[in-house]
Design a protein around this nucleic acid. Structure first.
Length: 290
DNA sequence: ATGCCTGGGCGCCCCAGA
C-alpha cells in the first residue's frame, strides 16, 4: 500500500501535473493540500477518470484538503480538526481507506511572526497534538500525512539559509512537533533516511529549485503498528522539475502487508535493507538526477 | 523594508504563500 502526500498549490491550476503524476506512479492513497478551490469546483470528474475516488473539503481562494483512493472511495471520518468550532480555515480531513485511518492536514504557515498568524499556528498544533493523542490511544492504524509547515531540525533545510526568524523554523513550532512525535509516531522518511537532504519544498523565488535549496515540510507520520510495516519511502523530486510544477513535491511511503506472523511480506522480501542510507527515490518511483 | 515567483479573486492590482 503506497500512500503519498502532495501540496498541489491549486488543484485546478495543477490538474495536468497532478494527473500525469497519478498516471505515472499510481499511488493507492493520495493526500492533497492547498486545493485553493471551492467545494463545487474541485475537479472530481477528472480524478475519477484517472481511477480515484475522493473525499474533500474545499474552500474559496485558500486552503482546502482532499484524500483520494485508487479504485475506492475513502470513508470520511472527520472533515475538520476538533478543538475550535469557530475555525473557518479548511486544513484537515480524515478518512478510512482499507482499514487505515488517513489524515490529510495543512498546518498554518504562521508568518509573519510574532502576530495572530503565529498564534493561530501554535493553537492549531495544540489541537493536532490533542487529536493525535486520541487516535494513538484508540490503537488503530493511522497515517498523519500532509504539509506541516514545520522544518523539524536544521538538517531539514538547505545549509547557509537566512531563515532564522521564519515561523517554520521557530523553536516553539519545533518543540510542538517534538511533543507530537513523542506520542510514538514514526516520521517515515527520516526513519529510512536518517541523514542528508530530503527536501519536499523549494520556493518559487530566488532560484531555489535550480540551486536545490529546499526544506522538508511535508511529513508522513505512522502509528506504531504501521511503522512495523514500513518498507520504503521517498520524495518524487521529478514532479517538482516539471513545467507548471507546484512548489512542493510529493512525499510517499510504501507499507507491506500486515501478515508479519506469516513471515516477511512479499514487499519486504522485494526490498533490500532499506533501513539506513537507502537512496529513497530509487525503487519507487524511478528517480532521475536533478 | 522590498522584490524576487505563483495562484486566486471583491480580477488588470491586491493578498497569501513559506
Amino acid at each position: 500500500m503506497r500512500i503519498a502526500t502532495f501540496n498541489v498549490n491549486g488543484v485546478n491550476a495543477r490538474l495536468p501535473n497532478l494527473l500525469r503524476w497519478l498516471e505515472a506512479e499510481r499511488p493507492d492513497v493520495v493526500c492533497l493540500q492547498e486545493l485553493k478551490a471551492d467545494q463545487c469546483i474541485v475537479p472530481l470528474t477528472a480524478l475519477e477518470a484517472a481511477g480515484y475516488g475522493a473525499v474533500w473539503q474545499g474552500q474559496r481562494s485558500w486552503n482546502g484538503v482532499a484524500i483520494l483512493a485508487r479504485g475506492a472511495t475513502p470513508v470520511l471520518t472527520r472533515r475538520a480538526l476538533p478543538g475550535d468550532p469557530d475555525d473557518a480555515q479548511v486544513r484537515y480531513i480524515e478518512a478510512a481507506v482499507n482499514g487505515v485511518i488517513i489524515a490529510s492536514l495543512y498546518l498554518p504557515n504562521g508568518n509573519p511572526r510574532p502576530g495572530p498568524k503565529f498564534d493561530y499556528k501554535l493553537a492549531w498544533l495544540e489541537r493536532l497534538i490533542a487529536h493525535a493523542a486520541e487516535l494513538m490511544a484508540a490503537g488503530v492504524p493511522v497515517v498523519l500525512a500532509g504539509d506541516y509547515n514545520v522544518v523539524p531540525t536544521e538538517a531539514n533545510i538547505y545549509p547557509g539559509h537566512h531563515e532564522r526568524e521564519n515561523a517554520l523554523l521557530h523553536p516553539r513550532s519545533r518543540s510542538a512537533f517534538v511533543r507530537l512525535m513523542d506520542q510514538g509516531w514514526t516520521d517515515a522518511l527520516r526513519r529510512l533516511q536518517p541523514e542528508g537532504p530530503l527536501w519536499t519544498f523549494w520556493a518559487y523565488l530566488h532560484q531555489r529549485w535550480p540551486n536545490d535549496k529546499g526544506m522538508r515540510l511535508d511529513h508522513l507520520l505512522l502509528s506504531p503498528d504501521l511503522a512495523t510495516r514500513l518498507v520504503d519511502a521517498g520524495v518524487s523530486r521529478d514532479v517538482r522539475r516539471e513545467a507548471g510544477a507546484s512548489d512542493h513535491a510529493p512525499a510517499w511511503v510504501s507499507l507491506g502487508n500486515e501478515a508479519r506472523r506469516r513471515g516477511r511480506s512479499r514487499a519486504s522480501r522485494a526490498s533490500t535493507s532499506p533501513a539506513v542510507n537507502g537512496d529513497l527515490g530509487r525503487r519507487w518511483p524511478p528517480r532521475t538526477s536533478l
